[in-house]
Amino acid sequence: MGATLVTEHLAIVMLVHVLRSHLASESATEPGWLAGLADPAVAAALACVHRDPAHPWTVAELARAGSVSRTVLATRFKKAVGQGPHEYLTAWRIELAAKQLRRGERTVSSIAHAVGYGSDSALSTAFKRVMRPRPGTTGSTRIPRRDANAVTCLSCDTFRDRPVLANCVCPPAEV
């Protein structure tokens, strides 16, 4: 029991050191959600989006969470993350929906409501705009992407060409 606790804490300490090392490196200047965590206002907005992706977030609400104006948040968010707050929210919702669709345990309609869309057609429209195919046609493992060279990691469910979750280190799966 004590060894398990020590092992868990050691793993946390190692994770913190790896993150600090990454943030101190030159690659930390690349846009992405990790770079967004370095800015307190953007980090607050990211926390809101990840805590409740189904909420109908406005830039004003996210800016209030970070105690800045809408313009300041939008500018800093785009610079840090590489896309605007609404684009990030849409991409995050679609990532969550795609993961649930691959599992195949729920209906498209229930997934749509769970990730913040009022109907399956609203999810389908957003899904097509971001990922191309209809949600019900994703199959069990791979989702075709706009970029023919894009691959989906089957181990950790990240999309290699997405700025939202582009930090996958797993070997790429064949498309």
Rank of each mutant, 00 (worst) to 15 (best):
V16K: 11
V18N: 14
S21L: 14
H22D: 00
A24S: 15
S27N: 12
A28H: 11
A28K: 02
E30R: 15
W33G: 08
G36E: 02
L37M: 15
A38N: 13
P40T: 06
A41Y: 05
A47M: 09
C48F: 11
D52F: 04
D52E: 08
A54D: 03
H55G: 12
H55D: 01
H55R: 15
H55C: 07
W57I: 02
W57D: 05
W57A: 09
V59Y: 07
V59Q: 06
L62P: 03
R64K: 07
G66Q: 04
S67Q: 13
V68A: 03
L73E: 04
R76V: 05
G82V: 01
Q83R: 10
Y88R: 01
L89E: 05
L89R: 00
W92V: 08
R93P: 02
E95I: 09
L96W: 03
Q100M: 13
L101W: 02
L101C: 03
R102V: 02
G104K: 00
I111F: 08
A112I: 02
A114N: 10
A114L: 05
Y117V: 00
S124G: 15
K128H: 04
K128Y: 01
K128A: 07
R129V: 10
R132V: 15
T138C: 13
S140C: 05
S140I: 02
S140L: 05
P144N: 12
R146I: 03
R146S: 09
D147M: 04
D147N: 11
A150M: 08
T152G: 13
T152W: 15
D157Y: 15
D157E: 12
D157V: 10
R160G: 06
R162F: 15
